[in-house]
């Protein structure tokens, strides 16, 4: 959070002189390939305005990754709605199945998204769900962890993909078995506390129903950045209750734990942290967070 404090607010239409060195890179000896600057959210190419060839169209702070290999720039802002962008990990709900695709709900306020069967990879060998035999028989309302594949403003629906076995239907049992091996670079992460609590505790529980919590976009970003922004919250909760979570950028978090009581405790901590907008406090919410965790999880 403190890293954001020094950054200047960018308004739509502001010229971005910071990007000029990335636009016209000097030819360097070791890397002669032309490097392309990737524009993330909030930035668009605008050839019609010579002062701002790269036009910021949202208010926020400029975020630049000036690495040699993959320079990228985006405007960081926290809109209330989720705007899908490619490669976002999301948690979706299955609405119905048609002959060629799963129809899923991405957010309640947008038309349904689709997962074509050929985008649904079920195992490491790359088998897709296109064949009737290999198609997973998912009940309506099941939760699928997917990735945004195609977003185009002129398309009717957002297209999602399930790029591997670590994605797919979110089942409590399946995830607990593979939990420790699954700390991939995506947002699907389990806390260290859950891993250290041992598999024995998790293996013999049967009656735990995982919880799906709807959270704000700001909260989503906090939970995904588990080592930086989310560290105070996650370490405070995890020190009391072991749990696992999967965060979808569409504002949903899936919470699982070793007992129903634990799941509810974690969900309540997250919900109250979010509703109280504790990250907005001058101290980063530390005082209120301590009080909250003490109240919910016991001292």
């Amino acid at each position: 959070m403190s890293s954001q404090d020094g950054l200047e607010v960018i308004l739509p239409g502001d010229p971005l002189p910071q990007l000029n060195p990335l636009l016209n890179p000097e030819p360097s000896s070791e890397d002669m390939k032309p490097r392309t600057l990737r524009l993330g959210q909030g930035l668009a190419l605008s050839p019609s305005t010579p002062i701002t060839p790269i036009l910021p169209y949202r208010f926020g702070t400029l975020h630049v990754t000036s690495s040699v290999k993959k320079p990228a720039a985006s405007i960081t802002s926290t809109p209330r709605h989720y705007h899908p962008s490619p490669n976002d990990p999301v948690l979706v709900t299955l609405l119905r199945v048609t002959a060629e695709q799963f129809i899923v709900q991405l957010t309640p306020y947008t038309p349904p998204a689709i997962i074509p069967f050929e985008n649904y990879i079920i195992n490491n060998a790359g088998t897709t769900a296109a064949a009737r035999k290999s198609r997973p028989n998912l009940p309506h309302g099941s939760t699928i962890y997917a990735r945004v594949a195609v977003v185009h403003k002129h398309l009717e629906a957002v297209e999602l993909s399930v790029p591997g076995p670590e994605y797919g239907e979110v089942v409590s049992q399946k995830n607990t078995v593979n939990a420790s091996s699954k700390s991939s670079s995506s947002a699907k992460k389990d806390t260290s506390a859950a891993a250290s609590s041992g598999n024995a505790a998790i293996a013999n529980r049967n009656e735990v129903t995982p919880y799906i919590l709807t959270i704000s976009q700001a909260m989503t970003k906090i939970l995904i950045a588990e080592d930086t922004l989310g560290k105070p919250l996650l370490s405070a909760v995890a020190s009391k209750v072991p749990f696992e979570m999967i965060v979808g950028k569409n504002g949903r978090v899936w919470i699982d734990g070793s007992s129903q009581r634990d799941v509810v405790k974690v969900a309540r901590c997250f919900k109250e942290y979010d509703d109280g907008e504790m990250w907005d406090d001058p101290d980063g919410g530390a005082a209120r967070l301590r009080e909250l965790v003490g109240k919910v999880c016991g001292r």
């Binding site: 239409g13 809109p79 705007h83």
Partner: peptide, 11 residues
């Protein structure tokens, strides 16, 4: 409009 994140050319 700025708070809502609506794409704008300028303000």
């Amino acid at each position: 409009l700025l708070i809502a994140g609506i794409p704008m050319r300028t303000t």
